[in-house]
Simulated scan of single mutants.
Amino acid sequence: MSTVSTIQEKSSLKTLFTDFKQLTKVGLSVSVVFTSITGYLLGATEIDFTTIVLLAIGGYFMVGASNAFNQVIEKDIDAVMQRTKNRPLPAGRMSVTTAMVIASFFTIAGIAILYAIHPKCALFGAVSIFLYTSAYTPLKAVTPLAVFVGAIPGAIPFMLGWVAATGTFGIEAGFLFMIQFFWQFPHFWAIGWLQFEEYNKAGLHMLPMDKKDRGAIVQIIFYTCVMILMSIAPVLEVTGSFYIHPITAVIILALGGLMLYYAFVLYKSQQNTDARKLMLASVFYITVVPIIYVVDKFLH
């Protein structure tokens, strides 16, 4: 009997841990933390590992809180969609109270940890959580402009790293923000294209003009071009102390070109398979480009 109860205990602990990971979206949170750290490495004159650890924990709490609040607000919407119906709240494995306690703790702890790095970091962290939960999440059910609002908190991590390293918000942090800001449109609209029917069923507006047509892809192409220009602008020495060498600009241009290529392929085919390729290319871009920036800085 004790063996059975031990197995059940282990199983319920495993479920609890899995639900916690789903509520705070660990995969997404880790990618955000990674971007913040690359932003820190770009801005730092000396590497302080304590700051990196605090930035990682504070960043994870910040994103985890936003995701947990989001899932509380969208519990009924998540229940309608195939992709999200098995999340802990709509599936009934976790109560709203538990999720709110986790979200609240993550908010307070995250902002406190970011404050320990620098008050500006705490401010940007708080703005990010507020905009994501109080503006982006409810707007998704109202207007396609929600993606524009959501792109603001989504673009804060890269910039947050720079602010953590320097304690200042200048043109360098502004450009890091703009790169990640414009990147989000092709990324989220590719997801919006893939999940269009599901989002539609749930009453969410995730494509420009609410239509799965070539007009949406034209916007994807436009924002991809703006993102590429922002990403290579540092080569022109117009972004303060954030500078990249010509060879680095060429490499980043080629990576942006890959995204642009898939956007044109999607324009021609309008197929979900090509939207998926574009989405994966965008993930590859935002993972690799910050690394290239850091390598560029430390090689010269």
Rank of each mutant, 00 (worst) to 15 (best):
D274R: 08
P119A: 11
H187K: 04
L41F: 14
P153S: 12
T51C: 03
V295I: 15
L54F: 13
C225V: 15
L229H: 04
A126H: 02
M62Y: 02
Y285F: 15
F175V: 11
I179V: 15
S2D: 13
G154E: 00
F49S: 09
S2W: 07
Q184P: 05
V218N: 13
L255H: 09
G256I: 09
A56M: 08
K120D: 08
Y40R: 11
G154V: 00
F69T: 00
V283W: 02
T224Q: 09
L253D: 05
A263I: 11
S128L: 07
T166F: 04
F188Y: 14
I108W: 03
M94E: 10
F222I: 13
F69W: 09
M1T: 14
Y267L: 12
F158A: 08
K211D: 01
I73G: 06
A126C: 08
V288L: 13
L253G: 15
A190T: 11
A190R: 05
T38C: 09
D274C: 08
R83G: 02
N70F: 04
V33L: 05
A122F: 10
P88H: 04
I7P: 04
L255E: 10
G257N: 09
P208H: 01
S11H: 12
Y243N: 13
S241M: 06
M81T: 01
M259R: 01
L207T: 01
V142A: 05
G167F: 11
M62H: 04
A275Y: 00
L16C: 12
A109V: 03
G27T: 06
E197G: 01
P138S: 10
L114W: 07
Y40M: 08
L41Y: 06
S95D: 09
S104V: 07
D19S: 13
I47K: 07
K85L: 03
I286S: 00
R83E: 03
Y136K: 02
Q219E: 13
I117G: 03
A275S: 11
S36T: 13
S66R: 02
M227H: 06
K25V: 01
P208Q: 03
S241G: 10
S11K: 13
T45H: 07
V30T: 14
R93K: 14
I47T: 12
L258I: 14
Y261R: 13
W183Y: 05
T84G: 04
N200Y: 00
